[in-house]
């Protein structure tokens, strides 16, 4: 299949492809957003959380979405402009889906204060918009084009190259170091957002002694490393032969854990969980939240 033929075909199919992309985005927003849309604490946070923190979260979501749109996205992007456009669409989808579902659940009703309605939707739109972009990579994994490429094993290099400019999820992920860390941040943010608002995070850390916390840290780091390097998942990262295991451990796993801790800290601060809490207690919260966060970070390296 020549490139020009593909281009011609994709041009003719553009509106349909775009609509399919939108549909996948909406499905992704739903799939990834539903656990949070059905969490009571998040509804409550929607009206009581401090507005400047909510605003910061909404702003921080923008570069993450652009990065995700560029890397996975629900359709092919080649320029920054396109990535921005897709990120924008994903955010919009996130807002729409959140509003729709919250209305469906009767959580938003006519006569509620405007600020409460906006707060609830805005907060839910963050995970939903990430979900919209992830939906493409998770739901559209084997479109026709990609199916061709997958079967075309003998034509290795070519398939990878075409993957780069034909489908939204390229076979070849040009993972530079910064991007790899960013991917981990997205994964950590996504899983943290799921659990951070619940009371359980606070409760668990109150039940734990510092010994438990130490064990949690070691186990989190161990799981992160094992997820990526030991258990052979799809897209497993293999080290060049002869490289000692601790190379990857120092260069990827430990920074990944720090990324996950920073994201946990940011999310907990955003939800006001760290206010007036002693630093040791705050650290315990962060360690507890980093447990799912680090799993999310490791999974992101594999799944995305």
């Amino acid at each position: 299949m020549s490139k020009s033929m593909q281009r011609g075909r994709s041009k003719a199919q553009e509106p349909r492809t775009f609509l399919v992309g939108l549909g996948r985005g909406a499905a992704g927003a739903l799939l990834f957003g539903i656990p949070m849309l059905m969490t009571m604490e998040l509804w409550e946070l929607g009206f009581y959380m401090e507005r400047h923190r909510l605003f910061l979260l909404l702003l921080a979501n923008v570069p993450l979405l652009i990065f995700l749109a560029d890397r996975v996205g629900f359709e092919r992007t080649t320029t920054l402009m396109q990535a921005c456009r897709d990120a924008n669409i994903a955010y919009g989808l996130g807002v729409l889906m959140s509003a729709g579902i919250l209305i469906l659940f009767g959580d938003i009703k006519i006569g509620m204060p405007f600020s409460e309605i906006v707060g609830k939707i805005a907060l839910q739109a963050v995970p939903a918009s990430i979900g919209a972009l992830l939906g493409r990579s998770q739901l559209g994994g084997s479109s026709d084009d990609q199916g061709d490429e997958r079967s075309d094993v003998s034509n290795n290099g070519d398939a990878a190259a075409r993957g780069d400019d034909e489908d939204a999820v390229p076979d070849k992920l040009s993972t530079s170091y910064a991007q790899e860390l960013m991917l981990m941040a997205v994964g950590a943010l996504f899983l943290s957002l799921n659990v951070a608002p619940t009371e359980e995070i606070v409760l668990i850390s109150f039940k734990m002694t510092p010994w438990h916390a130490l064990a949690t840290m070691i186990i989190s780091i161990g799981i992160m490393h094992a997820f990526v390097y030991v258990v052979a998942f799809k897209g497993t990262h293999e080290m060049p032969a002869g490289t000692p295991w601790w190379h990857a451990f120092f260069r990827f796993t430990l920074p990944g854990y720090v990324v996950s801790m920073s994201i946990s800290f940011f999310v907990l601060w955003t939800f006001g969980r760290l206010d007036a809490v002693a630093s040791t207690q705050a650290l315990m919260f962060v360690i507890v939240l980093s447990f799912p966060g680090s799993i999310g970070a490791a999974a992101a390296r594999l799944i995305l």
Partner: peptide
């Protein structure tokens, strides 16, 4: 796995070690 290029390079940039 073998069809996917590995993200880990044999000669990593010093920044990676510094971050590590």
């Amino acid at each position: 796995i073998s069809r996917r290029p590995h993200s880990e390079r044999k000669d990593p940039h010093w920044v990676e070690w510094a971050v590590g």
